[in-house]
Computed example of a mutant assay.
Amino acid sequence: MSGGASISRDVHRLLKGATAKLAGRNPRGPDIGEGRRVPHRKSFLETTPEAKPWARIGDGSVAAGLAHREAIIETAEQLRVDQWRKFPLQEVRQARLERDAAATELEELATRSPAELPVGRPAALRQRIEQLDAKIEAADRRLRRTDLTVLKALLAFLDFKTGKLFPAHETIAEKAGCHLNTVKAALKRLNNHGFIDWVRRTARTGNEGEFAPQLEQTSNAYFFDNRRKMAKTTWSRFVQILTAKMRRIGRTPQGLAAAPVSDPSPPPAPGSLAAAIADLGAAVSRAST
């Protein structure tokens, strides 16, 4: 590349960056290495507290950590089964076909004169398309089998004592035996259902004083915000599974510390059970978020 072309490119970058700054935008910047870009949203330097969202899992022991990990995986598996029962593949395919047919008919009606339009038909079609879109969108959020594989691969890197969890996407893909894009799509769905969350981590490039990017993204730092992000029914199921596993290893979350490990007595009244579950939820949240 000629010197003039290089200068022109640098000037273009400067002008683009200045324009973005004046407009209140935070540009991603150019690539740094293969497939890497300067992050612009929800990203923090590795050395800052924000880039270290992890917390000890349970009491930090291997037994408690395994109980938490298995409870998350089992809850995700049960949710996947429920979702595919609610939205069977054939039913979703039929919804897509019906949606396409309705959209085609609506487009055809748009070419007619007002006098030729069937009374109320366009409005009925638009309403039906909206209903089908909602159903298809909900079905598209279903967990896949590959999502469970990715979740297991990700959690294999979890440090129970500290809660640290920041493998690269490529590392997760290698562990799961799947494509990088499969990992990214799976993490997005797992995040949508509250099983995992993350912040982007960045590192300084050492280009201070040079016309070059100052930061590059390294990897995500994963953490658990299950109680806040999971649907209520999913969270309740997770609590039940985790409680059973903790009791089997002779441990009980703080909220149920006074209850015997194996109590054959009938369950308490609904009010007190609800209170116990609430206490348990707070304890699990403190331990795993």
Results as ranks from 00 to 15, higher is better:
I196S: 00
V81I: 15
M1E: 14
R25Q: 09
S265M: 12
H68C: 04
H169I: 11
G206H: 02
P27F: 04
T252W: 05
K52S: 03
R204M: 06
R237Q: 07
D31G: 13
E130C: 06
G29A: 01
A287F: 04
T233K: 14
K135P: 00
E116W: 00
S6P: 00
R9C: 01
D82C: 07
L117W: 00
G281I: 04
G65P: 03
L180Q: 08
N220R: 10
S8E: 15
A110Y: 01
A244Y: 09
P267L: 15
R128L: 10
G281D: 13
A156N: 08
L155M: 00
T234G: 06
V199N: 06
K161P: 07
R93E: 15
P30M: 09
A103G: 06
K164F: 13
A168K: 12
W198A: 14
T171Q: 15
L22G: 09
K164S: 11
R37M: 11
I196H: 01
R251F: 12
Q217N: 09
T202E: 12
K188P: 03
Q78I: 08
L154F: 04
R142Q: 15
T149N: 09
I172W: 03
Q83A: 05
K184E: 05
D147E: 00
M230K: 07
T149L: 08
I277Y: 07
Q214R: 10
A269L: 13
A257S: 13
F223H: 09
G33D: 02
A283L: 06
A110T: 03
I196L: 02
R286P: 05
A287M: 12
S285H: 14
G120T: 02
A134I: 03
Q217Y: 07
F157Y: 15
D197T: 14
A123I: 01
H68W: 11
Q90F: 09
G35Q: 06
T218Q: 12
D197E: 14
A287P: 03
F238H: 08
G33W: 01
L158M: 06
L187Q: 12
Y222A: 04
R96A: 10
S43Q: 11
P88C: 04
G163M: 00
K232Y: 08
R144D: 13
T205I: 00
G3F: 11
T171E: 15
F87M: 10
A212I: 00
A244M: 12
N26A: 11
A244W: 08
A221K: 01
L165P: 01
R227T: 05
R121F: 04
Q94C: 09
L132W: 02
V199A: 04
R141Y: 10
